[in-house]
């Protein structure tokens, strides 16, 4: 009991002194659980996030755009892998995490349950979705858990190209024909509100926020980051000559921020509880890809075992 208290005190001291907690350090069970939940959900979001953009790889308008999109989707896979291995340092296995994703037990970012209907969506996703993700992820580079923080440094370094290429797609469309500009506007109309929802519930109704802030896993509140995103993005929309689909959006001289309209949280609840436009499709596709790869995983494991056994035999013979 007293030892437990000592350990807990040491943990609290580390957190207070902005020291990192490393994989083998003692940590409270609730801290471990929170991290496993957050990091694995983050990893799942990267992996499911490959699908909306993967949808356009074969139909990109040029070889250049196709190469860029391919590189971006490959990055999302890489980000998922960094994060899965960061979560594994906490004592959960890769299989357990994949199982939780495939059975619907684990959640992922609700944004990836929206369809990508036109090429302009590749622009809007990069610009808005990756833009919101960066806003969320940069503070995580300083989170109190070392392996997560280090994985996030890698992710953030790579994410910036994602947003810039998306903005450039929007810029080209906005400067194109009237039809192209209308396509860009339509994409902004559809992705704006779901992007704002990416920051999660309002602070008052966010159930994990307070504890995560105390543990320095989270550094800024949902509403703070959302406001920052709006302030940064609205001038970019103006630059594109597009209008943000929010009649209540207005610069507030007094606060130095944009005021914006209320978010439709019932839509968020619907999508997060499985009833978004693409939830079933996304999971079905993921499970299918996993099952179809089973023979490859088994064959590679069998081959490795055979080679190892043969090497073993040779050592014994010699």
């Amino acid at each position: 009991m007293t030892q437990e208290m000592d350990l807990n005190q040491r943990f609290e001291d580390y957190i207070a002194a902005d020291q990192k907690i490393e994989a083998k350090d003692w940590m409270p069970d609730a801290y471990r659980k929170t991290l496993i939940r957050q990091i694995s959900q983050h990893a799942h979001s990267e992996i499911i996030g490959m699908q909306p953009e993967g949808n356009w790889i074969t139909r990109a308008p040029s070889l250049k755009r196709k190469s860029i999109l391919l590189a971006k989707v490959q990055d999302e896979a890489g980000h998922g892998l960094y994060l899965y291995s960061a979560a594994e340092t906490l004592g959960i296995t890769r299989d357990e995490m994949l199982d939780a994703l495939h059975t619907g037990k684990a959640k992922y970012s609700s944004i990836f349950n929206y369809p990508t209907l036109t090429w302009a969506d590749m622009g809007a996703v990069g610009w808005l979705v990756d833009g919101a993700a960066i806003m969320n992820q940069v503070p995580l580079c300083k989170c109190s858990y070392g392996p997560y923080a280090r994985a996030m440094v890698r992710v953030c370094k790579e994410e910036s190209f994602h947003q810039r290429q998306g903005f450039q797609v929007m810029l080209n469309l906005s400067n194109g024909t009237a039809e192209q500009k209308a396509m860009a506007q339509d994409a902004l109309n559809r992705w704006w509100w779901p992007s704002l929802m990416m920051f999660g519930p309002n602070d008052a109704s966010s159930k994990h926020s307070e504890q995560s802030m105390r543990w320095k896993i989270k550094r800024f509140s949902n509403d703070e980051l959302r406001q920052r995103f709006v302030d940064m993005t609205v001038p970019q929309a103006e630059l594109l000559g597009l209008s943000v689909p929010d009649p209540a959006l207005k610069w507030n001289e007094e606060t130095g921020h944009y005021d914006f309209g209320p978010i439709d949280w019932s839509e968020f609840e619907q999508v997060i509880s499985g009833n978004g436009p693409c939830n079933r499709e996304r999971i079905a596709h993921r499970v299918n890809a996993h099952n179809e790869g089973a023979w490859v995983r088994e064959a590679a494991a069998a081959h490795a075992a055979k080679v190892a056994a043969r090497a073993d035999q040779q050592t014994h013979a010699a």
Binding site: A86, E88, R94, R150, R154, A300, A304, V307
Partner: peptide, 12 residues
């Protein structure tokens, strides 16, 4: 050290 990954053998 940069991170970890799963693979069937050293070459992979």
């Amino acid at each position: 050290h940069v991170g970890s990954l799963h693979a069937a053998d050293a070459t992979m």
